[in-house]
């Protein structure tokens, strides 16, 4: 008898999901956010279709406020993995000068991420989009199906989700409707790290501790990635040994003080952690149930 470990079970489940989408949707894409979950998702997708190339492109929604090293990593990976990469930015939002400071994190996220995403999906007519969200991240995510239906306006209706029985997935959508598909639904943060370690998956170096220039803003450590970050006259960036537990737009992503400079040490630290991962995401704390609201609007 072949017995699978929990990581092998999760891997097989994800591979099955990738193939299911490739077999049943006309025009799928993978949302690639450059973070660790995207790295794992891409790795699993490559495994699912081996020895063939990925039968769908990666889509990166670039808010123009991502860490510089994320963009460098993205371009390197696209080349090394030989995948098609689509980068989309909300040009209107850019022209309107929407930034995370003057307009508030919430509105900025809506325009530069949610709206940008909807634009990109409409522009390319994708009928299925993979996302790297996990159910352990947040409690409205814990309720979401693996194949999660979106209406013509990309909206999610959490009260009327299609039943999802076994792994016999419902894959039929009408024109303009689409499916968000989450192959990592049943993975936990610890699983992601264990898998990165086991499979030696490349990740953005920001996940490992190093000396970086940071300032304190609203009780959070923010890395000064370029000169666009508004600082008080008396504020100076100081070098601290930090790493990031999640990655997003640099002004909205808090660093944590850490000495974990290898993946092994990160895993050990993660398994011992007493705070959740999204603790470092500023946009999730705006209000109770903010994630559910954003998802209803079309956010991943």
């Amino acid at each position: 008898m072949v017995h699978l470990t929990h990581l092998q079970s999760l891997e097989a489940e994800a591979i099955h999901i990738f193939r299911e989408v490739a077999a049943t949707f006309a025009n799928p894409a993978m949302l690639y956010s450059v973070g660790k979950d995207s790295s794992v998702m891409l790795h699993l997708a490559m495994k699912a279709f081996y020895p063939a190339r990925l039968p769908f492109p990666l889509l990166h929604v670039d808010t123009t406020w991502k860490f510089k090293s994320m963009i460098a990593f993205r371009d390197r990976i696209a080349e090394e993995y030989d995948v098609d990469l689509i980068v989309h930015t909300n040009r209107q939002g850019l022209a309107d000068g929407i930034d995370p400071f003057t307009h508030g994190a919430d509105y900025y996220t809506h325009v530069m991420k949610t709206e940008a995403l909807r634009q990109a999906l409409d522009l390319h007519g994708f009928d299925a989009a993979f996302g790297g969200a996990r159910r352990d991240e947040e409690k409205s995510r814990a309720k979401e199906r693996i194949f999660s239906f979106r209406d013509e306006k990309h909206g999610w209706d959490p009260k009327n989700q299609r039943p999802e029985m076994w792994k016999t997935y419902t894959t039929r959508v009408a024109p303009k409707q689409s499916m968000r598909v989450f192959p990592l639904s049943n993975w936990t943060e610890a699983d992601i790290w264990l898998y990165i370690l086991k499979e030696a998956i490349p990740i953005v170096p920001l996940y490992l501790a190093a000396k970086r220039p940071v300032v304190e803003k609203d009780g959070m450590l923010i890395m000064v990635d370029d000169n666009r970050l508004p600082l008080r006259p008396d504020q100076v960036a100081r070098q601290e040994r930090v790493r990031f537990r999640t990655l997003g737009c640099y002004p909205l992503t808090a660093a944590m003080r850490s000495g974990a400079s290898t993946i092994e040490e990160v895993v050990a630290e993660t398994l011992a952690s007493r705070t959740s991962e999204r603790h470092g995401r500023i946009i999730d704390r705006d209000e109770n149930a903010s994630m559910e609201r954003k998802k209803k609007e079309g956010y991943f």
């Binding site: 159910r135 409690k139 309720k143 959490p158 009260k159 639904s185 049943n186 610890a190």
Partner: peptide, 24 residues
């Protein structure tokens, strides 16, 4: 409240949909 993750569930104090939780 930890498990009932949807707004409607918290407001009505009932569980509407299945939630997945993880532990080891």
């Amino acid at each position: 409240l930890l498990v009932d993750g949807l707004e409607a569930e918290r407001e009505q104090g009932i569980t509407i949909d299945v939630a997945y939780r993880f532990f080891a």
